[in-house]
């Protein structure tokens, strides 16, 4: 794994287009999914993905290859998403929560989770996910879909490990009632 990350770091430092192309191919879907979970909407996500890769191209030399590439990439995407939210006045500077990331305003359109649900269980979760605070949703996707460790998530979101863990607990607590009192 270390040699992979070194190769990526070297490629990014050189501005090697082949390396970038392979990275785009490999991480595109995961970036899209992460940003949808974070923003709670589909519109604007493609632009953010594009900006993320431009930022990777521009600042790729700051990735030193000592740690996995994915958390670094998701951190870049997150910073851009938070900036975008700030611009859309969804980010409140005097907010009490750590990030100030707020729930997207309700809209008449079906949520991205409803549209993306492919199983009965996912359909049940879709509504809860849409109403869940973005930071909890983000913690859930990073832990259970991206399989990041608590330390990696902590580095991505810029919050202590204990905060990340409690976001996961709260996220699960919101989703769990959908399946309570049923046999599998």
């Amino acid at each position: 794994m270390e040699s992979d990350t070194r190769q990526i770091a070297l490629g990014l430092r050189r501005g090697d287009f082949g390396v970038l192309e392979a990275l785009v191919e490999q991480y595109q879907y995961r970036l899209v999914r992460y940003l949808i979970y974070l923003l709670g909407r589909r519109d604007g996500v493609d632009d953010l993905v594009q900006e993320t890769w431009l930022r990777v191209l521009k600042r790729g030399s700051s990735y030193d290859g000592q740690f996995r590439f994915e958390p670094w990439l998701f951190r870049v995407a997150r910073n851009l998403a938070v900036d975008a939210m700030r611009k859309r006045r969804m980010f409140s500077l005097d907010s009490n929560d750590d990030d100030g990331i707020r729930i997207a305003p309700a809209s008449d359109e079906p949520s991205p989770f409803t549209l993306a649900a492919r199983t009965e269980d996912a359909e049940r979760l879709a509504r809860s996910l849409q109403t869940l605070e973005p930071v909890f949703r983000e913690a859930l996707v990073l832990r259970f879909q991206e399989d990041f460790s608590l330390q990696e998530i902590s580095a991505i979101v810029g919050a202590p490990v204990s905060t990340v863990a409690s976001r996961i607990y709260r996220g699960l607590a919101t989703l769990r009632p959908q399946f309570k009192g049923e046999t599998a």
């Binding site: 785009v24 399946f179 599998a184």
Partner: peptide
Amino acid sequence: RASNRAIAGLGGFSFEVDPSLNAMVL
């Protein structure tokens, strides 16, 4: 059991990605 089912349920989403997105990004 409910927790595991909720976690497994998260894998039941498949978000559509614009097929031209990769080309646009590149």
